[in-house]
Amino acid sequence: MRKTLLVLGLSLAATVTFAQPSTDALPPKHVSFSFEGPFGTYDRGALQRGFQVYKEVCSACHSLNHIAFHNLSEDGGPGFTDEQAKAIAASYRVAAGPNDQGETVDSSGRPLTRPGTIADHFPPPFANEQAARTANGGALPPDLSLVVKARAGGPQYVYSIVTGFHQKPPSWFKVLPNKYYNPYFAGWNISMPPPLADGSVKFSDGTPDNLDQEAHDVVTFLTWASDPRMEERKRLGLGVMAFLIVFSGLLFLSYRRIWRDAH
């Protein structure tokens, strides 16, 4: 028995190792949003301000491929009117097909474009992955239309990344060339320069434009971009839960009545 325990203990000891300092991402910051919880909704003002942040700052490098201009006027979204959505679409230039002469580029070799319509999706800032990498030192800025669902930690994670710059790295940590220190990003070296700071965007509704507000609003907007049907989902969920609870109750009463004499 003792020998068995010794063998067992030694084999266990052979498997253990000692811990090392890690550059795992820090847990995301604790920040709350209006859309959290079973009754959460998107704050319309935050969505519109967040759209402004995306448009003025993020869209320089990040595409939003899955959002169409008509989404901007749909229920559960930023709440633009159909006319406003049409005007926003028209303010963008999207790739146009060949003209009547069959040309796809203009006289200076640039691809033909036309004003957007509500049926169009947001045009990407770069024509393709190679162009995006060339413009960003080899790094590829990811598309943002699903970023909040595509990252563990969701909105809190994206908020932490966006506000997690401007800190002093520990002395033993080496910041790589062309990278920036952000401990909320795995490995702590992120290719994106700090995108936002106090006063980066001037909000037309007079909301203070500090970093926290800008980050909060752009994360709200990006959460909507990832999950535009959230409000409809939670509303329908409430009705379904109410129905199911009533129906379960009726089924329970039926069950008890049927089985009353049977056990």
Partner: peptide
């Protein structure tokens, strides 16, 4: 009826996931 009752409870849990934590 007994299976329908337990099924409805199971569907309640399913609905919580589908609608609130999909």
């Amino acid at each position: 009826v007994k299976d329908a009752f337990y099924l409805s409870l199971f569907i309640i849990v399913f609905a919580i996931i589908v609608f609130y934590a999909p």
